[in-house]
Design a protein around this nucleic acid. Structure first.
Lengths: 105, 105
DNA sequence: AATGTAGTTAACGAATTCATTAACTATGGA
DNA sequence: TCCATAGTTAATGAATTCGTTAACTACATT
């Protein structure tokens, strides 16, 4: 849990997660969306993987990365459930989220 | 939003939020729950306030801190809703695209 | 006015983060 | 085998974070 929040502290890493939400991407394809160097990207990916937020799959020459399903949301929910006033906002937001999702179909 | 994630990156600050969930506390009461110095605490509180997660209310000699209702949960899940694997049809479509890609090699 | 308590600000140092370049491993193709 | 591409590891340096102590402001009590 510690590691998840550390991972999310970086704007670049949050963007990577957003890109991976679209679907699986190779390291190179992710890197093409940023300015920084390959080693920098490699570090970010290692941190996200260490947090359990993404997983890697090496196929031939390429390394594919994808989100670990539900991991992010589960962690955030589990933590927020402890920290937030549970009676009101969490439930309300939960409903709102379900509605946004439904709308997206 | 940036500031919210920066604020959450610190274990101490996440604990402070958890304490404030119980209800309003003075800076001193919060400080009593930690080892570190008063200036250190003051810095954490400033960061949490800057992120809009807590608000302060000076009454006489004391400064009371409390959670800004809904702010944390709203920010967190508004963001997560964009980044997380969307459930249902969208997700299936995403997978299908990944498979087409894999097949194309 | 004098003193004590609550809290912040300032200045500084240690540790960590985040990026870089250079060198390496591994796969694929000529 | 030779070379190009994909990616990681190592070493390094700049910037930021996080803590400290010392000094300050504000309020309350005597």
């Amino acid at each position: 849990m510690e590691r998840v929040f550390e991972a999310l502290a970086s704007t670049a890493r949050r963007k990577i997660l957003a890109y991976l939400n679209q679907g699986e991407l190779t390291a190179g394809e992710i890197g093409a969306r940023f300015e920084f160097s390959k080693p920098a990207l490699s570090g970010h990916l290692r941190i996200l993987e260490g947090a359990g937020l993404i997983e890697r799959d090496k196929r031939g020459q390429f390394v594919y990365f994808r989100l670990v399903p539900d991991k992010l949301v589960n962690t955030l929910f589990a933590w927020a459930a402890e920290v937030c006033p549970t009676a009101g906002p969490l439930k309300r937001e939960s409903r709102a989220r379900a509605q946004r999702k439904a709308k997206a179909r």
